[in-house]
Design a protein around this nucleic acid. Structure first.
Length: 574
DNA sequence: GCCGTTTTCGGCCCGACTGTTTTCAGTCG
């Protein structure tokens, strides 16, 4: 999705946060949040759509549309700048601590003059918080813990932002006449759940114009600091992500790509194989030791082939057993993006999604799926009554006839799991859905034994088919819930409940290590995006990448199956 | 600030959990 959409969404989000601190009308705040969500979920560049189309988007009216245009023209919004000027920036930052919302942050600011997280830490250590109403020893303890974790977290970036930036850079580089190939490498290509920096490679005989162009590109609107050499340039984006571009000769491209993709452990092992065969592998190519003659280098495949190996997928290059198998020509076949026949987790405006049923179905059809599921939230605050469930069912049936293009649209539901492992809906209501996802959304801090019981009870429920984002973590925001992974995974396998691999970039849940464990215990998986807007469905690739990192074959992923087999699985009659 | 096959004005953001305040405010999803 276009970077400008994300930027404007983030500006509205910040505006809403700031207004919340200073106590603006809550519905105005809500309106900005809705506008932000809509823009973030919109697939096309908002700068390139008509006024009518813009105000036609849900949650965008005259005032927000004019702010959108203002941002496109000036790079900011008057209202945002005014709101920023009202408070020290650290006050907003304090609200990123779990348990610290706008009310508490403002109280600390106004009563104790605390304006940064550092000052907060000092105040807690000096036991000054206890004087304030609403602050006790537990709060102090929690905040100190959160501040500590924050200090230890190294600066890593979520996949999505990095991917979008990489895609944009590649699009521009590939359009240059001098560039014959361009790819991203590094941990992004291996699809690690977070990445430290972005490595881009381009093949060109003459690097100078490529470097020139790279230096002139805008990164997230603001040109970052830049270091330039003849074949390597580095830029640090506004967000702090370092982007390295290396330009290599076309006949070195494969070697460079292999080298910069890593992982380091994989490369070390591959080089050892080269040495044993009387060859030398570097980022410039594969050479004979004897006379330094180039054997391979233009593509990765020819390098691996020359070493007598299959080419492992980038996502499998972690030296976790892939090398002996590649040497034996026995690399397992793992899932590919094109194996996915449908997305089984998506929200609409019936709960907290930004898209209508029609918009989501259309987006699903555009992904080329043969089936697609609408799974709004059941229970909790969403008044998803039996009447509304029926209404949604009718809407789904009508819309899928009109827009589905032959795609089957299922009506599922994502049920919040209560602390005792029960649901807000009766079994009868649950049975009226095509299938049921069950997810932990609250009471995240339960002790592991209780959490394990809670989840096992869910596994044994006859209507439950998928556990959504099983550890409920939020990358860089919230740790996973604690439970006995093995016991719960065993229960899933025994009860025909699939474990979700959420492709949501903030979740990536299950993560690769957990998927590996679950595979060993015989579990099946469902790779889903948990999309809350029509522009999010492409996130499927992060889930597929995660599954690949755990060597999952398509066969073990229920949403690669034909619809009839999937339905049997949901009916637990497989 | 947005929105309308119940409304162009009056709704919209609610239920559960947590910690602390003994009756509930703040936070989170």
């Amino acid at each position: 999705m276009p970077i400008i959409n994300e930027e404007i969404a983030s500006a509205f989000g910040e505006l809403a946060d700031l207004l919340e601190l200073t106590g603006a009308d809550r519905y105005r705040i809500l309106a900005y949040r809705r506008a932000a969500a809509t823009l973030a979920g919109f697939a096309r560049d908002v700068g390139k759509i008509s006024e009518k189309e813009l105000t036609g988007l849900s949650g965008i009216g005259r005032a927000t549309a004019s702010k959108v245009r203002e941002f496109i023209e000036t790079g900011t919004m008057r209202a945002l700048e005014d709101a920023r000027a009202e408070l020290p920036p650290g006050v907003l930052e304090m609200t990123t601590l779990p348990g610290m919302g706008p009310k508490k942050a403002m109280l600390l600011h106004s009563e104790l003059g605390i304006n940064t997280i550092d000052e907060l830490q000092t105040a807690i250590e000096g036991q000054r918080l206890r004087e304030l109403k609403g602050f006790g020893s537990k709060t102090e303890e929690k905040l100190l813990g959160a501040i500590g974790r924050r200090a230890h977290a190294s600066k890593r970036f979520l996949l999505e932002g990095a991917f979008e930036l990489a895609d944009e850079i590649l699009r521009e580089l590939r359009a240059l006449p001098q560039v014959s190939r361009a790819e991203y490498a590094g941990s992004l290509r291996r699809m690690k759940e977070t990445i430290g920096d972005l490595d881009i490679l381009a093949a060109a005989d003459d690097p100078a114009p490529v470097m020139e162009h790279f230096a002139s590109m805008r990164f997230g609107r603001k040109r970052g600091s830049i270091a330039r050499g003849p074949t390597k340039s580095s830029i640090v984006t506004k967000a702090g992500l370092q982007v390295d571009l290396r330009v290599v000769a076309p006949d070195e491209f494969g070697a460079a790509l292999q080298y910069f993709t890593g992982s380091q452990a994989h490369n070390v092992a591959v080089r050892e194989i080269a040495v044993k065969k009387g060859m030398k592998l570097s980022e410039y190519g594969l050479f004979t030791v004897e006379d330094g003659k180039r054997i391979a280098g233009a593509t990765e495949e020819e390098i691996y082939q020359a070493l007598g190996m299959q080419t492992p997928l980038p996502t499998m290059r972690e030296n976790r057993g892939e090398i002996p198998l590649a040497l034996d020509e026995r690399l397992p076949s793992v899932i590919r993006r094109e194996d996915i026949k449908g997305d089984l987790h998506a929200h609409t405006v019936y709960s907290d999604g930004t898209g209508s049923v029609a918009e989501m179905v259309q987006a699903g059809a555009e992904m080329g799926y043969s089936y697609f599921a609408i799974t709004d939230h059941g229970g909790g605050r969403w008044r998803f009554t039996e009447k509304i469930i029926r209404k949604q069912r009718q809407e789904i049936e009508r819309v899928s006839r009109e827009l589905g293009g032959g795609m089957t649209v299922l009506q599922g539901v994502e049920m919040s799991i209560r602390p005792d492992g029960s649901f807000a809906f009766s079994d009868e209501v649950l049975a009226s859905f095509d299938f049921v996802i069950a997810s932990v959304h609250d009471a995240l801090g339960m002790d592991p034994d209780a959490m394990t019981r809670r989840l096992i009870r869910v596994m044994e429920h006859p209507e439950v088919n998928i556990i959504g984002h099983p550890t409920s973590r939020r990358l860089q925001k919230r740790p996973p819930i604690s439970f006995d992974l093995e016991a719960v995974f065993r229960a899933a396998a025994a009860n025909d409940v699939a474990l979700e691999i959420s492709a949501h970039p903030e979740r990536i849940d299950l993560k690769d290590d957990h998927v590996r464990l679950a595979r060993e215990l015989g579990c099946l998986f469902s790779i889903d995006t948990d999309s809350h807007g029509p522009g999010r469905l492409h996130r499927m690739r992060y889930g597929v990448g995660t599954a690949q990192r755990a060597w999952v074959p398509a066969e073990e992923v229920i949403n690669t199956w034909p619809l009839q087999r999937l339905k049997k699985f949901f009916a637990k009659k497989a």
